[in-house]
């Protein structure tokens, strides 16, 4: 449901209400409405992913505690996912190139780089699909344990974001092929780019927290931090 709205908002913005009025009064901040909207929306999306990531972190290690295999340490394939993370990062580069092409009025460049970005995004999604099915065959599903539930929900919501991004890029590509994206419409591409870069950055965070950080140390640091805070407060209270 939420994802539908993003598309909604994004498109409402992308072809927004100020379309084609060169003489429209300048905005108070100097920023275009749609650009500001995208930034505000991304702030909201930060909280969205923040809640999901927090959920994941709370249940991190829960599968091991209860002894419900498969455990993340045995099932996560870091080299494989590093490769797909690299693909997604590269798509940010092609996105930048697409924007710079349209800003220079290079329509052919725009189309090539949009297509490349959408393709890289699709490769990432394909990789995720393969990873999910692989895990499923190894016995990890939403229902298996807390790791399965929180992992699939977190990466699944991210995948949904990437999917929307790919659809958006393909829509732009389609419009461009019909001559609908002019040099002065470069903001349309820039907005898609903002969204795309955001989704990439979120993946870096997820990749680090879910895949890279080894599975024992985190809980210790957490308890350590809480114990420290508790000690400080206890001694403050003791003074009174």
């Amino acid at each position: 449901m939420a994802t539908a709205v993003e598309l909604e908002r994004a498109h409402g913005a992308g072809h927004g209400d100020d379309h084609g009025h060169a003489d429209h009064p300048p905005t108070s901040t100097g920023l275009d409405h749609r650009k500001l909207l995208m930034w505000a929306f991304l702030a909201s999306d930060c909280m969205f992913f923040g809640s999901l990531i927090a959920t994941y972190m709370i249940y991190r290690g829960r599968a091991e505690d209860l002894g419900f295999a498969p455990f993340p340490s045995e099932i996560l394939d870091i080299p494989y996912t590093s490769l797909s993370a690299f693909v997604l990062l590269m798509s940010s580069l092609t996105m930048v190139l697409a924007l710079s092409a349209i800003q220079k009025g290079d329509h052919r460049g725009l189309r090539i780089w949009l297509a490349a970005t959408a393709l890289l995004g699709s490769i990432f999604l394909g990789g995720q699909y393969f990873e999910f099915t692989e895990f499923y065959h190894e016995g990890l599903s939403l229902q298996t344990n807390m790791f399965g539930a929180s992992f699939f929900v977190l990466t699944g919501f991210h995948g949904a974001h990437v999917t929307i991004g790919v659809i958006w890029l393909l829509t732009l590509l389609f419009l461009s092929l019909r001559g609908g994206v002019k040099q002065e419409d470069s903001l349309d591409v820039e907005l898609a780019g903002l969204y795309w870069h955001f989704v990439d950055i979120v993946w870096i965070v997820i990749f680090t927290l879910v895949y890279l950080i080894p599975y024992e140390e985190v809980s210790e640091t957490q308890t350590g931090a809480f114990a420290l805070l508790g000690g400080i407060l206890r001694s403050v209270a003791a003074i009174f």
Partner: peptide
Amino acid sequence: LIPTIQTMF
């Protein structure tokens, strides 16, 4: 606040 925290501990 101060007696509150004391009582809690």
